[in-house]
Structures are given as structure tokens and as C-alpha cells.
């Protein structure tokens, strides 16, 4: 089986994998990082979003082999020294989750939005930028509030 090596949450990892292995399968099944979820497996829902070389990607729609040498950050890589990332904290504070299934992808996408659009985000921008992430519980209102608050907190 072909071998792949990459950096995940700051650690060098590698594995011999079937060429069909998707990034999300490599993360969940090989590395046991089960924070990244699979909601649809058809590239629609965004539950599986992780950062690859600093950009949000749907990990269910990328082959692991294609990411040889890449730098991947998953939801597990956001907190530092046992302290939640400001965006995670904002989701908790604003009650932006119910079942929590969409949350890892929502948070990874939200951090990506801040990286691209800065710390002052209006509602319209947030809703537009979250188009690739679906939530079947919250009705989105609190997610939008959380992203705005998390974005501001990230500036501090």
C-alpha cells in the first residue's frame, strides 16, 4: 500500500493506506482523531471541514495521498494548554450547538472566515460564508452570534 506523510496538529504522522483513503478516513480511522465528522459524505454539509495549509477544505472530498507533506489542523488542534480556542469558547458561550454534530466543521470554517475576512464580521457576511456548512438543530441564529463574538475575541 502507498505511504503518506503529513503534519497533523503539529505532529509528523504517516501511514500505509489504500489509495482510496479520504483525508477524513485517515484522520478518524488511522489517527483516531474522531473530532472531524462525516455528515453527508457528498461534499455538502461541511461537518468534515479541516484546515490544509491554512485553508478550509472538506476532508471527505480530498484523497489523503494527495496531501503528501501538507500541514493539517483539525478541531483537536485548536485548543492550547487545555484552554479552548476563542471560537470554541464563543460557541459554548452563545449556545451555538445542540447535538454538536456540525460543530467541529462550523468552528473550523469560522476560524477560516476570520483568517480571510478579519475580526469584524457582519451578519450577512457570516451567513454567506457559512453556506457550505449545514446544521439541522440550531436554526443558525446562535451560530451567527457565536462567529461574530469569536471573531472579535480572536483579535485579543
Amino acid at each position: 500500500m502507498p505511504k503518506v506523510s503529513m503534519t497533523v496538529n503539529g505532529k509528523e504522522v504517516s501511514g500505509n493506506i489504500d489509495s482510496r483513503t479520504l483525508l477524513v478516513q485517515f484522520l478518524r480511522d488511522t489517527l483516531r482523531l474522531t473530532g472531524t465528522h462525516v455528515g453527508c459524505d457528498t461534499s455538502q454539509c461541511g461537518c468534515c471541514v479541516v484546515h490544509v495549509d491554512g485553508k478550509a477544505l472538506k476532508s471527505c472530498t480530498v484523497l489523503a495521498l494527495t496531501l503528501e507533506g501538507a500541514n493539517v489542523t483539525t478541531i483537536e488542534g485548536l485548543a492550547t494548554d487545555g484552554k479552548l480556542h476563542p471560537m470554541q469558547e464563543a460557541f459554548r458561550e452563545n449556545h451555538a450547538l445542540q447535538c454538536g454534530f456540525c460543530t467541529p466543521g462550523m468552528i473550523m470554517t469560522s476560524v477560516d472566515i476570520v483568517n480571510r475576512k478579519g475580526n469584524k464580521l457582519d451578519e450577512q457576511t457570516i451567513r454567506h460564508e457559512l453556506e457550505g456548512n449545514l446544521c439541522r438543530c440550531t436554526g443558525y441564529h446562535n451560530i451567527v452570534k457565536a462567529v461574530a463574538a469569536g471573531a472579535e475575541a480572536m483579535a485579543k
Binding site: 461534499s43 471541514v49 477544505l57 472530498t61 477560516d112 472566515i113 453556506e131 457550505g132
Partner: peptide, 9 residues
């Protein structure tokens, strides 16, 4: 086109 993650790739 699509959403931000699709456009990145």
C-alpha cells in the same frame, strides 16, 4: 462557485 471550501480546492 459553491462554498468557500469548494473554492479553495
Amino acid at each position: 462557485i459553491g462554498d468557500p471550501a469548494v473554492r479553495h480546492r
